[in-house]
Amino acid sequence: PSDLSQVWPEANQHFSKEIDDEANSYFQRIYNHPPHPTMSVDEVLEMLQRFKDSTIKREREVFNCMLRNLFEEYRFFPQYPDKELHITACLFGGIIEKGLVTYMALGLALRYVLEALRKPFGSKMYYFGIAALDRFKNRESDYNKAKKGVDLADQISYYSFSNIKMYIEYGQQSRDPPVKMQG
């Protein structure tokens, strides 16, 4: 199912304005430029990781609110300027990389990336897919073990991003890529 509420019950709840506002403020910091307060994608990911299993209900709500809003935003990504889209791709890929979503929601996240990679080479969403994939490529082999039949590598043009393609092909065989490729 493509409907988020069907795959992610926690995303279904109603969030108070305070939770919405707090979630908004963190996203704001990702896209801000100094002298406004900023946070890096990695800092936000670390915070989300803490909030996910927090004993404080408000923090778990902020986590669910942020993730839900990000997923719901997917359909608007083609309207983003390049810089903001790249930041968003790093955040989206980082969420997959860090295992912040699991099961059906993870399946949906991966499908969004796959869908982006099916867009024409050079299109905005294609680059979104590549940038997101670049973040979680180190985890690819885990997913390919569980997710037979979806061939990410086939979606990537032969004439571009050959390193990422090779990386995934090693992952499909549950092998580590050569050390020289790590960079």
Binding site: A23, F27, N69, F76
Partner: peptide, 17 residues
């Protein structure tokens, strides 16, 4: 359930180009 409210920051980003 109704669709979630789009956060203001996202509205701002997608119209800024």
């Amino acid at each position: 359930p109704s669709a979630p409210r789009r956060l203001p920051i996202f509205n701002r980003i997608s119209v800024s180009e």
